[in-house]
């Protein structure tokens, strides 16, 4: 565990909590892509099956359970409790265009052809594209509340910090997880455009982040 990994996990947790509280307190999920949240719940489900097979540390177990609980709770808020505020019109990204290639690739490119390993690989590939429906929805509606922008900032920072963590681990212990690193780079690249907008518009204090 190094500072990059820990701060990455903290950013991830902050992002998930920001989103959950935003929906819970505003009693609305307007501007939020339910599809992305379902994909994230799927990412955690397929990645954390090892909760039942291997114990790494209390921190590892607790964080996995917290991520799963918050992810499913958020999906529950969007599709059940506050479903009348869910803007399915704007949340029109075809997730099958993500799921099919990701599933196919996880069968082709993995570390071992075992169910747990393929599901883990699937979750890594899926996570790199899971935010696309949300980013697509923002470009479609042309704007995002600043709280949603903060959510995306922390979510983007989390994997960027993991990249630093992998650099550090490669440098100090020769650890190198090719699948996770390549996917992490792709994932972070998708946020670059958003980061630019965030630091040029949201921080200027304009309440909403309106896209060009």
């Amino acid at each position: 565990m190094n500072i990059f990994r820990l701060s990455g996990d903290v950013c991830h947790l902050i992002a998930i909590i920001i989103l959950f509280l935003k929906i819970w307190r505003s009693k609305s999920c307007a501007g939020i892509s339910g599809k992305s949240q379902v994909l994230f719940a799927l990412v955690f489900t397929t990645r954390y099956l090892d909760l039942f097979t291997s114990y790494i540390s209390a921190y590892n177990t607790v964080m996995k359970v917290v991520y799963l609980l918050l992810a499913y709770s958020t999906v529950g808020l969007i599709f059940f409790r506050f479903r009348n505020s869910y803007d399915s019109e704007s949340d029109s990204f075809r997730v099958e265009f993500l799921l099919v290639p990701v599933a196919g690739l996880s069968f082709l490119e993995n570390y071992a052809f075992t169910p747990l390993e393929i599901l883990w690989t699937f979750s890594i590939y899926l996570e790199s594209v899971a935010i696309l429906p949300q980013l697509f929805m923002i470009t479609k509606t042309g704007e995002a509340e600043s709280i949603t922008a903060h959510y995306l900032l922390f979510l983007g920072l989390y994997r960027a910090l993991y990249l630093a963590n992998w650099l550090w681990r490669f440098h100090t212990e020769g650890f190198y997880d090719q699948i996770a690193v390549v996917s992490g780079v792709v994932q972070t690249i998708f946020y670059c455009d958003f980061f630019y907008l965030y630091f040029t518009r949201v921080l200027r204090g304009s309440g909403k982040m309106s896209l060009p």
């Binding site: 990994r5 790494i56 590892n60 964080m63 570390y111 071992a112 390993e117 993991y162 090719q178 996770a180």
Partner: peptide
Amino acid sequence: DLRINPKDEL
């Protein structure tokens, strides 16, 4: 195949 990483990360 590459060493199966310890999956000690989230």
